[in-house]
């Protein structure tokens, strides 16, 4: 494993963040920060400067798509993968249009999460 990638995990559900962290344990992806809503995510993105963001959509206060817009405004090269239960055409289109690099519909299984992270790294971060 050549390097570790810093990951920010954003989800309003503590349980879901636990599951994602458990899935990434012992992989090349290191969860360096967590956030529970969109506002926190934007703040945490500034502070933790992650290589990748896993971003939920359905969250209280500020939803994921709005947070995505603010993150992309901070850093137009941000690599954000949406991880959401909401697998509607509108949600996917909206997220990709706003700058998300990829979209994973919940439930999240370890295998598919690692696969989408690795694909995204290959495509956008030229490892």
């Amino acid at each position: 494993m050549s390097r570790k990638y810093k990951v920010l995990v954003v989800d309003d559900s503590t349980a879901m963040r636990m599951l994602i962290k458990a899935s990434l344990q012992d992989s090349e992806f290191d969860v360096v920060a967590e956030a529970g809503d969109g506002g926190e995510a934007v703040q945490s993105f500034k502070v933790s400067a992650p290589d990748l963001v896993l971003l939920d959509i359905v969250m209280p206060v500020m939803g994921g798509v709005e947070a995505l817009g603010q993150i992309m405004a901070q850093d137009k090269n941000a690599v954000v993968i949406m991880v959401s239960s909401l697998g509607t055409e509108d949600a996917v289109r909206e997220a990709l249009k706003t700058g998300a690099k990829n979209f994973l519909q919940k439930p999240v299984e370890q295998e598919s999460l690692l696969k989408i992270l690795r694909n995204t790294v290959d495509l956008f971060m030229g490892r």
Partner: peptide
């Protein structure tokens, strides 16, 4: 919180079907 998220996953998939 966990059951809330299970509900969220069910609803999200339901919405995908509607979509």
């Amino acid at each position: 919180d966990a059951i809330g998220e299970v509900v969220n996953i069910i609803s999200g998939s339901g919405c995908a079907k509607l979509s």
